[in-house]
Write a protein that binds this DNA or RNA. Sequence first.
DNA 1: CGGCGATACTTTACGCCATAAGGAGATGTC
DNA 2: GACATCTCCTTATGGCGTAAAGTATCGCCG
Lengths: 253, 253
Amino acid sequence: MTVYAGQGDAQRSLALLWGAPEGPRTGRSGPKPGLSVAAIVSAGIAVADAEGMAALSMRAVGERLGRTAMALYTYVPGKAELLDLMHDRVLAELPTGPRESEGWREAVTDWAEELYACYLRHPWVLRVSQARPVLGPAELAAMEALLGALRPAGLPPARLRGAVAALWQFVRGQAATAADARGAAAATGVSDEDWWSARSARLAELAPDFADRFPLLAALQSAGGGAPEDSHREAFRSGLAVLLDGIASPPGA
Amino acid sequence: MTVYAGQGDAQRSLALLWGAPEGPRTGRSGPKPGLSVAAIVSAGIAVADAEGMAALSMRAVGERLGRTAMALYTYVPGKAELLDLMHDRVLAELPTGPRESEGWREAVTDWAEELYACYLRHPWVLRVSQARPVLGPAELAAMEALLGALRPAGLPPARLRGAVAALWQFVRGQAATAADARGAAAATGVSDEDWWSARSARLAELAPDFADRFPLLAALQSAGGGAPEDSHREAFRSGLAVLLDGIASPPGA
DNA sequence: CGGCGATACTTTACGCCATAAGGAGATGTC
DNA sequence: GACATCTCCTTATGGCGTAAAGTATCGCCG
């Protein structure tokens, strides 16, 4: 199941994302906190990485910390805000420093590869809604890094915005496809290759007129390409190439 | 929340998607069926359109048909398969006939606009997983239509695959962004514009060093662009332009 | 025409989920 | 020592998908 983030209390999420790193807490009564927002976020990521988004429940996170689900509500307003925090923590894995690439093509390619790999490490992030982003520091840093990589291309603002959108959506979408395929393979024990051939066989059975109804599709399918085992990477590379060429070329028609 | 589709019994889904259009049912005993797969799919789409993916439950669909949730299981193996059917039914709204466009750029633009509009009509479709696609007839037809539009560009197979992937992911991603923004606006009563300005103000408060930490982002933000009220369409258009230019240009570096 | 098997649909039940409400125990300040 | 404050718990509510089993309705065959 997909999960909306950014649907919680945005103000609270923002404050937690950018908030002070938990001062020394002087002059407050009551028992010492046994948990922390950071620990809860880590536990949430651990659960989601291990069991997937569907298994991410407040109970599961609490259990991993030796608490009940309700204990978390002392630190975090609710599940939606926790997701916002988890999202930004994951994006913080991306490098932000200046790049040593030779040109903007390489720099953008590096950026895309890093993001793609990050998404594959944490596939559940792809189930987090992207509109009305929560604008955590890591997300903004990733954006800034992409803008830095694209700078030498010298695009005007409108086109730059388009390029950024197209690149991010593409990486995200391809990562989602690859991640889902990997997840399905793991869940069912059927390799991607086997799954596709089984599906194709069944389809040929149900729609014997396939090649007539979808001639271009059939032609493309039979026009072999890269080895099937890395078809996801192949699609990623060739799609990215199209995007880079588009960025490099002067605006057309 | 996002929902996996294609996670149900793929064989059953395929059969239902491609299956015979319900023969006259001769020589069968028992009460006459009061429902049909098609009616259930329609009801599901109606519920999802009206209330969103999160509100799509077997109970809700059954209720709309004057039945209980369990009545649906006579016709459909489960919720996952129902989602597969709903997905393909929605894509069947797309035009498939030959286009009267003047060139491939226009043809591809038309295709992208149609798909974008379709996603916005049924935003919940964007919460359906895309890997291991169920390969319903409508989805294949949409693919075939895109290939037809791209044909005059004369791309070699590998690049064609890349272009298709990049285009589809881009449209899907942009539609998701726009749809989420619209949904959030409807749910909260806060316009996109107001939301962004409120968010920006809060952000400036929490991160006063914003312009120092993210100079390129700040610059891009202040470099005004299209009117804010159609910023989603603007991003869609300029991103698509980059993609089309990339498809038009010869493979680079 | 009687009865029987197949089918449509229902009720009930199970184990999940997020979280509201309220209580118990620990810790600090006065 | 009294009290306020804070952490964490137990309990409860109303949802979910769907397994299991029961009931009602129909068509066929004897």
